[in-house]
């Protein structure tokens, strides 16, 4: 049971700070086969406490992401569970073929921990944005993909991965002082989405940082006496087919993600419904095949329509233009 006070303090640390500074630290204490490896981002990721207290369990290969994946995999082949940590963009893209070869093809027991995914790096610019990472990780067989909504969920993702055997990508979005989705403890299980607002004829499925936005949108519509369900899809692969089946008669489903609409959460949802005889209408809200104009993360999200007011307007427009929905 995680106390409310802890949840508040973890929100200040953010997803990365909580995952690396709290969850990995605890897991290292608990499991003797856990190692953490990074490409020169230990301090940035929040691993300082691990580096100081468990230097034997921390490896730094320098700024060399391709080799990072290889070294992590070699260690994993020796019966270890290895967390490989770097910026989501460099980790998944510079080392992509290495990930495919070692984690996908050979199922190396490596957990990729991509920090600052989406547009969290703000003014650093598009080199540092990870907006295609879900798409490319989804395409690799055997990969598990987790995308926590807030710091508490990031904690649970890491704790779950500490005893999970197999390759995984954990996508950590946002920075420090992240917005909490959960203000109290809840049940987390890999592959099981969380319903945060009662399911209805219109439903939002969101992931990562955008779950917070989805709740805000739903609450605004509630005031307008329009009920919109909210699902937190923290596991993107394998996607929770059970909940998708439950809402297959929705009039409208919105996916929201801080990621390209090509290949991400929205695509994963569409891929599921493509197999059914009758599919619901799906509107994908995300980054529409562009490199966004650079600014701080709030600015970029506004540019991309990834904020509450813009999402509310978009949903209102669709509802008012589609009589079948009303």
């Amino acid at each position: 049971m995680v106390e409310k006070k802890k949840i508040r303090s973890w929100s200040r640390l953010g997803q990365s700070g909580t995952a690396c500074g709290v969850a990995i630290y605890e897991s290292i204490e608990e499991y003797s086969n856990i190692y953490v490896i990074t490409a020169d981002l230990g301090v940035t990721a929040g691993l300082k406490r691990v580096m100081d207290n468990y230097p034997d369990r921390f490896i730094n290969v320098g700024i060399a992401e391709q080799s990072l994946i290889g070294v992590a995999s070699g260690m994993a082949f020796e019966d270890n569970n290895v967390f490989a940590v770097s910026f989501a963009t460099f980790l998944t893209m510079r080392g992509y073929e290495q990930i495919r070869h070692n984690l996908g093809y050979q199922k190396a027991n490596v957990k990729l921990l991509g920090i600052s995914a989406g547009v969290a790096m703000g003014m650093f610019g598009n080199t540092h944005y990870a907006i295609e990472d879900i798409a490319i990780m989804r395409a690799i067989p055997n990969m598990l993909i987790l995308s926590p909504a807030d710091a508490l969920e990031a904690y649970y993702c890491i704790k779950a991965m500490s005893s999970y055997i197999g390759p995984a990508y954990i996508r950590l979005s946002d920075g420090v002082n992240s917005l909490p989705v959960y203000d109290e403890d809840y049940d987390f299980a890999i592959g099981k989405a969380v319903t945060l607002r009662s399911l209805s004829k219109i439903n939002i499925i969101a992931t990562g940082r955008m779950v917070h936005e989805a709740i805000a949108v739903s609450d605004i519509f509630k005031e307008k006496e329009i009920s919109i369900g909210v699902i937190n899809m923290h596991t993107i692969k394998p996607i929770d087919e059970e909940i998708l089946k439950t809402i297959c008669n929705s009039q409208l489903i919105f996916s929201i993600e801080e990621h390209s609409v090509i290949g991400g959460l929205g695509s994963a949802i569409s891929d599921y419904y493509d197999c059914l005889d009758k599919r619901p209408r799906i509107e994908k809200i995300g980054i529409h095949d562009v490199f966004p104009t650079v600014g701080n993360k709030e600015y970029v999200r506004k540019e991309c329509g990834l904020y509450t007011d813009a999402i509310v307007k978009r949903i209102e427009n669709i509802i008012s233009n589609d009589r079948a929905i009303n």
């Binding site: 391709q66 290889g70 070699g74 082949f77 070869h101 070692n102 050979q106």
Partner: peptide, 25 residues
């Protein structure tokens, strides 16, 4: 056969990881 091969340049990193893990144990 310890590891898969075919994509050049990758084996030495895997070997380094194995060697590191062996030393730790």
């Amino acid at each position: 056969i310890e590891v898969s091969g075919g994509s050049l340049g990758q084996g030495l990193s895997i070997g380094a990881g194995m060697a590191l893990a062996l030393k730790k144990k």
